[in-house]
Design a binder for these strands. Structure first.
Lengths: 209, 209
DNA sequence: CTAACGTTTGTCCATCCGGTCAAAAATTTG
DNA sequence: CAAATTTTTGACCGGATGGACAAACGTTAG
């Protein structure tokens, strides 16, 4: 559609990767407007004009990054399937999302930044690709509810709550660490979170008799 | 400590409020770096030099805003009390937090922006005021758990999950609306969210026999 | 009324930032 | 090797932006 045939040399392929990696760092901590081409160029170990030889505009870098992101970002949700035990399926989804928050926090923050600012560049994808994917999975979940496999509730808000709780550990990482302190805020915090979320989503807070 | 005695005229008091109100709009949607003094001045209905007469630096506006914010932002958590039924107490906290997301979404986004970017301006408050407040309330919750009033789990992660799920409706509002669509994304979404969260936190997803 | 004080504005400045350009340097190709 | 092509760089440009300043304007108290 857009790019007819981006024939690239070896150097172009490599350097573009270096730039995208550096840009992920900078965009995810400063947002689009807050990031400067100089910062990205410096992080990528090259001069600004050199960087602009590979990406002609700052926005091109961001767009490329967002396009790649959405695919991997929605992968865990895509995996939800009708076969298999519903509770196991949901538990697996929560686990996968939490692992993504742990392993790809910059991607999570990049996404959060974009949404926070009103999603100016990815609104179409939210209303199109994302909405239809959620609609599809919400139907599956509804089926589980009708079959009595899980409690009856709003499937879309269930998905929101999984997104919110897991991504919180990436997006609000500094706050989580500050509150937990040096002892509890170390590497173990993701295991603690996993244990807590499993219990929350399964049985909530009512004590078992 | 810092300001010895800020004696202000009536006009100063009024105009500063107008500016802070306008700045909340601009900062919460564009972040600190993304916001310009011109934008804020325009939103406040005055010229840039005029605005700079009331706040000498852009950062002063942001700082003032953040200081005020934290007080009101933590108020719901402060209200959690040892007296009264634990489950009722927690349900009330969730409700209050969700109401804040509904009624003060700009404040929520301002806060989220700050944390996302590493909390460069409020880190001390997170490690001090916020941490000790959470520590204090976590102790209360732990007491409830020991008494068998609520399920035993990690009280700090419980608080995180309440923050995450409720603030999600303010911070990720555009995504929530996009996914829910025009019909379900209207005014009713907060009632739906309230119902869902109540059920999630109380009894989770395991179906009742 | 008038002097003192508070408020507003137009103008200006230095810096930053996204982006261009031509020429030099490096690499690939014949 | 030499020509053709790709990559890198330094210098530069125009516009945006944070902020300074003095002069003009408005308000208030004696």
């Amino acid at each position: 559609m857009d790019a007819p045939a981006p024939r690239r040399t070896r150097i172009q392929r490599e350097k573009r990767e270096v730039i995208l990696e550096a840009a992920l760092d900078v965009f995810s901590t400063h947002g689009f407007r807050g990031a400067t081409i100089d910062q990205i160029a410096e992080a990528a170990g090259m001069s600004k004009p050199n960087l602009l030889y590979y990406f002609r505009r700052k926005e091109d870098i961001h767009t490329t990054l967002m396009q790649r992101l959405l695919d991997t970002w929605l992968a865990p949700l895509r995996e939800i399937d009708d076969v298999g035990d519903p509770l196991t399926e949901l538990r697996g989804y929560i686990r996968r999302k939490l692992e993504m928050a742990r392993d790809f926090p910059r991607e999570s923050r990049l996404f959060a930044n974009e949404i926070l600012q009103g999603a100016p560049r990815i609104m179409p994808m939210l209303e199109g690709e994302l909405k239809s994917l959620v609609d599809e999975k919400a139907e599956i979940i509804k089926g589980w509810m009708r079959a009595g496999k899980i409690a009856t509730t709003d499937p879309r808000h269930l998905i929101f709550s999984i997104w919110a709780t897991t991504q919180h550990y990436a997006d609000f990482d500094v706050q989580v660490r500050a509150v937990l302190g040096p002892d509890r805020g170390g590497e173990g915090r993701f295991e603690d979170a996993a244990r807590f979320l499993e219990q929350l989503f399964l049985s909530g807070l009512v004590p078992r008799r």
